[in-house]
Design a protein around this nucleic acid. Structure first.
Lengths: 216, 216
DNA sequence: GATTGACTGTGATATTTATCACAAAGGACT
DNA sequence: AGTCCTTTGTGATAAATATCACAGTCAATC
């Protein structure tokens, strides 16, 4: 992860239009603009949280992870969005309960968490931003629970694909193994279900990718 | 649901010790103290949210619900805790994504949501309270996802029982059917798994209740 | 164009969970 | 004690998913 030149106020303002004046300046002063290549792990489970992450470019994927290293995809973060988990106030001891990975090349603002408390006190717009972030992520988790608790794998796969399509368009560059990892199932199960979808003409299968063509 | 006499400042302060002075008075002025009997539904999925709920007495259970009315238990709310879902600002149009039920007889403070925006502006301690509420609920959801995504039914049942034990003590007054509903599985499955736990001497089974005796 | 390695397809089988069927047990009430 | 209703126990079977095994396919590389 490299630290490169900072954004200027207008650039930040475009991403986070609802903030107040002093806050932009504080960001410029104290945040660090970092980059990471596609596939990089940005935050590990159990890792001490040292900074808050605001996505500037690219897409980040948030996972739950278990003891054996199995992953479970929860939701995406896009430019202008923030990682709720890292917005800790008070403690320097909080450990991450999630795994965050860069899907594409990403750049993000990293703010040392010692500013969290201060900014909450100082900037109303930051306060609102934190609440909005939690609310949005909370709602994403509810959707994830809904799928996981009530649906069979075929429907969960469809939901998963639709989420990806919304993010990346109809052609998805994903191997069956990658999908299986995200859904915590096995490659064979995904292959068979995708084949069924192809038979139903919901998708067109290719090597290393497929296209969603279902109209609904 | 009845509206009864309001709490006094000291009583509220005991439940919510971190608030500031004006906020207690605003609560007394605008909140309504309501009660509901054990088993009552406090909030339905899809229902328009008209007020924020702060638990005063008793325990509330939060569920996800699907189209067919199947339920999935997510977490408890205890006195001094609040329902994150109902802490909406801005909109009067938000619909509940969760189902809330009284486990015991409960009393709670209901605050019309038109005050949410105002209080966020006016009271820092309220702002912090909202953030803390979201954070706590978010973490509960993460735990729920972890269990649901990675564990088999035997482990999920154990996790479920331990949560209940933490709430209500070692003797749980639950039928197998009730547990099955909370875990979105079938009564037979629960019966068989409980019987196994009894054989392992983790529990003692009785009619309409059982006792957790595993020491770990 | 032969080799290599990652990806995909698919049968066979095991495991987990759901569903059906029905019996037995316990408590409440007459 | 007998009736009724809810709860619990458990076999049999079905359905969903996981695992194992292996073959075929494609693309990159030498």
């Amino acid at each position: 992860m490299n630290s490169i030149a900072m954004l200027n106020k207008d650039q930040i303002k475009q991403l986070f239009p609802d903030w107040e004046d002093g806050l932009y300046e504080s960001i410029i002063e104290h945040a660090e603009l970092r980059t990471a290549p596609a596939g990089a792990t940005l935050l590990k489970m159990g890792q001490n949280i040292k900074s808050t992450m605001l996505v500037v470019e690219g897409t980040v994927k948030l996972y739950q992870e278990n003891e054996e290293g199995a992953e479970y995809f929860m939701y995406h973060l896009n430019p202008g969005e923030a990682c709720a988990v890292t917005m800790v106030c008070n403690y320097h001891l909080e450990q991450s309960q999630v795994l965050a990975k860069a899907v594409t090349d990403v750049s993000f603002l990293a703010i040392p968490i010692e500013f969290m408390d201060k900014w909450l006190n100082q900037y109303k717009s930051w306060h609102y931003f934190v609440i909005r972030t939690y609310r949005l992520r909370y709602e994403e988790l509810l959707k994830t629970i809904h799928e996981t608790a009530f649906k069979n794998m075929d429907e969960r796969l469809e939901f998963y694909i639709k989420r990806q399509v919304k993010q990346f368009g109809n052609t998805l560059k994903l191997t069956h193994q990658e999908i299986a990892n995200d859904l915590n199932t096995s490659r064979e199960v995904v292959s068979r279900l995708l084949k069924k979808m192809e038979n139903h003409q919901w998708i067109v299968l290719n090597r290393n990718s497929f296209e969603w063509i279902k109209k609904d």
